[in-house]
């Protein structure tokens, strides 16, 4: 009998988020449950994952009983891992959000050097997307907005501001005003700085 039918509906979706470089070395890793409790097991899993995925550019695989969705760009490999019963498209949504957020934060320059120079941005962005295995946000605009790195790190173009306003206009008006205010404040800060 299939296991998935016995599974409890829960908000815990993501088991791990990984970013590896093109030698398979860990640049970032966050495990949200005890599937791989020790660092040794985690590294072994990462090695296995990298060996199985770095040569192909397909975006999904089943490894060690887990569903792995992945994406690579230049010298970076992004992975989102969930249970094999998880909705693959949900995991994809997380992966896309992570990639698009970073792409915006790094001005489309998603490569190892740029990422390492913005490590704090990466930490903050992942924290905004997934916390404790629960998906917090799937909209990259919202993530970039919330990470709100200091002016010189965030490409604050006219476009992003208008997009943020647009997306938040559907939220309760009170908050929208506050957020926009904050954003404008942030931008003026940039001008002064």
């Amino acid at each position: 009998f299939d296991l998935s039918s016995l599974q409890e509906p829960t908000l815990y979706t993501v088991k791990a988020v990984l970013i590896l470089d093109n030698d398979g070395e860990r640049l970032f890793a966050k495990y949200y449950d005890d599937t791989y409790p020790s660092v040794k097991e985690q590294k072994a899993f990462e090695k296995n994952i990298f060996n199985k995925t770095h040569r192909t550019d397909s975006e999904i695989a089943l490894l060690e009983g887990l569903t792995v969705v992945y994406k690579s760009n230049i010298d970076l490999y992004f992975y989102v891992i969930g249970s094999s019963h998880e909705n693959e498209l949900m995991l994809m949504a997380v992966l896309n959000c992570l990639f698009d957020s970073l792409s915006q934060m790094l001005r489309k320059n998603v490569e190892k050097r740029a990422l390492m120079e913005n490590m704090e941005g990466l930490f903050l962005a992942v924290d905004e997307i997934v916390d404790g295995g629960v998906i917090l946000e799937s909209d990259p605009q919202q993530v970039v907005h919330r990470v709100a790195l200091r002016g010189d790190d965030v490409p604050l173009t006219e476009q992003t501001v208008s997009q943020v306003c647009l997306s938040s206009s559907c939220q309760c008006s009170n908050q929208c005003v506050k957020k926009t205010n904050f954003f404008l404040f942030n931008q003026s800060h940039l001008v002064i700085g």
């Binding site: 397909s58 693959e88 498209l89």
Partner: peptide
């Protein structure tokens, strides 16, 4: 066109 969707 999306591999994840085909896979699922």
């Amino acid at each position: 066109p999306k591999p994840a969707l085909r896979y699922a």
